[in-house]
Design a protein around this nucleic acid. Structure first.
Lengths: 331, 331
DNA sequence: TCTATCGGTTAGAGCGCTCTAATCCTGTAT
DNA sequence: ATACAGGATTAGAGCGCTCTAACCGATAGA
């Protein structure tokens, strides 16, 4: 069980430890013969370099820290996918911590991430106070995903929520809808932008905004739909939900009330989670390029790490409307 | 940007580096006064211990490595959740790597994980050859989740696929079904156990097994359902799908063919992913206690790490049937 | 023949920490 | 006063590696 060290490999190959180090870092200044001897010795011993010792000695780390506020959320899983690919392509490794959706645990997770002395960190939808972010940003490059910041030292990557909502409203209007309600995501991330985008777009079309407070959950969607039905009056002919699961909740309430989707009422989600794509559901929704967001975030981080850039970058990704079967023209 | 070291804290607090080290490890043999002074200095400097240096010096790591074969799969996300909680409770940290569903990339990920010299590693649904696992197990404790092994040096945590399938079949029989088909998961993890469980249970009831080759995807579920319909004859009155998404695929095909679920045909999924719980879907499915699996896996690993056990543990978790709206009695 | 050059190789210091053994106090017993 | 116990503190070595500077030997030019 005693793991072999560089010293062991050197001895076996009959060279110095420094030479082994050069081979391990695939330096060009090693003769072919020695290189092969070292590689063979390493292979025989089952040696692989000690990452901690390496980063300690080189005083620069090949690690990127990632804080995921919620691993359950498929939204983040796909972003991590993008991060993962970009990270490995550049020869970096990931240390992932999850925040368990609690600011205090997230705070601890950030401290923990820092103890690895990563080259930089990526915070995915963090719920920590801005001061924590500022403190971290004073020590190393920080990139925020799905959260904004005014700090010049941090970069941000978000989807353009206003545009996304506008996209949905515009299309609904095009389909002949004029009474379009919005189920609002409350104080959760991104929901303010989505609400503003909805309001602005409605006014631009000369329509009256109609916002129902809700949340990013299925249950909240059911509830908001029930409230909408209870209000009676002329029912809206379309709903822009807070997000996909919220939309699905709304759809089941409508279904139980005898309303057909989309014949009686159109529903649009937001996020284009894998859920929306199920044929069985076929939810029209606003797509965010998640893998792309992960890639851009990693790229921005590595630029800072390499010292190629010191000015902040604010990526606002253009969302797209994906039309499936829950929207249709008014009759 | 220069991160403070223990030396800096020591100087500021007017003590030796060794004393700071003791405080950082919350040793009892430090006077209250000094402890406070050190903590204050650390706070002021924004100091946090360097994990790499720490593990190098103490030559024992507080890191657990995790390889996730597929981060997209919500199944793993929940297992990680269980791992995460158990890990932090014991003062360990996680280094997560993803395998991207490719054996070669998984292999690289394992090597990478090892370079962190973790105390042990958890492999979630790994697709690497057994030899890779054996090599790793020769160096440190290894626990396999959702994959079996005969190696005495590795522990395994799986759900009892045979029992799960039998549970579903038994219930369907109880509901009056006798023509029950199974959509098979092919060579994917766990599918052999599920198939065997299905076959055995059917025979036990004196029924003829009816297996359709399929896969763990929605599209495969649609296809298998189409084949089943094309075969004609007396249609099965129930289907035990390979997993949840497979079941959902089957349901949409049935729906498009004019078959009502569950009136005309009952469908049971497997995994109880968050998907199944949506009211809109309401899939009857076999539940695996995922967070529990994560917890048990971590526990097993830490036992090995602490040298408390050298004999292998084989956790076979008891699944449970969750009845929702896609199953009903035969008419 | 002597020196400069240059690719290949190595010695040795040091990264930030832990850990052992030694040292330093302070109070108490003699 | 002297010795001693025992807790608090510190010096110093060393973890596995990288990196700088020095070194070595062979070739080439003078």
């Amino acid at each position: 069980m005693a793991t072999p060290t560089m010293e062991d490999v050197a001895e076996r190959a009959g060279v110095s430890r420094a030479l082994v180090s050069l081979v391990m870092r695939s330096s060009p200044k090693v003769s072919a013969g020695r290189r092969e001897a070292v590689l063979r010795a390493a292979e025989e011993l089952g040696y692989s370099p000690h990452a901690a010792a390496r980063s300690l000695a080189s005083r620069n780390s090949r690690i990127l820290g990632v804080l995921v506020s919620d691993l359950h959320n498929p939204f983040f899983a796909e972003i991590i996918d993008g991060i993962d690919v970009a990270t490995h392509a550049e020869g970096f490794e990931l240390v992932i911590n999850t925040g368990g959706r609690s600011p205090s645990r997230e705070r601890a997770a950030v401290t923990n991430l820092l103890s690895f002395r990563p080259a930089g960190i990526l915070l995915l939808g963090p719920a920590v106070p801005a001061s924590v972010i500022a403190d971290a940003a004073a020590k190393l490059p920080v990139v925020l995903v799905a959260r904004g910041s005014r700090l010049a030292s941090v970069d941000t990557v978000q989807d353009h929520g206003k545009v996304g909502s506008a996209l949905a409203v515009d299309r609904l209007v095009e389909l002949g809808h004029s009474r379009i309600a919005h189920f609002d995501g409350g104080k959760a991330a991104q929901s303010a932008a989505r609400r503003t985008g909805y309001r602005t777009a409605m006014r631009r079309h000369g329509l009256e905004p109609d916002v129902f407070p809700s949340e990013y959950t299925e249950v909240a969607g059911e509830k908001a739909a029930a409230e909408l039905l209870a209000r009676g009056d002329p029912l809206p002919t379309a709903v822009l939900a807070a997000n996909d699961v919220n939309a699905i909740g709304a759809i089941s309430t409508f279904g139980r009330a005898g309303l057909r989707v989309p014949e009686d009422i159109s529903v649009v989600g937001y996020d284009n989670t894998s859920l929306a794509a199920f044929r069985h559901i076929g939810l029209t929704t606003v797509h965010q390029p998640r893998a792309e967001m992960g890639r851009l975030a990693t790229e921005a981080l590595l630029q800072r790490v390499r010292g190629e850039r010191a000015t902040p970058v604010r990526h606002l990704l253009r969302p797209a409307l994906v039309e499936r079967t829950t929207t249709g023209a008014t009759s």
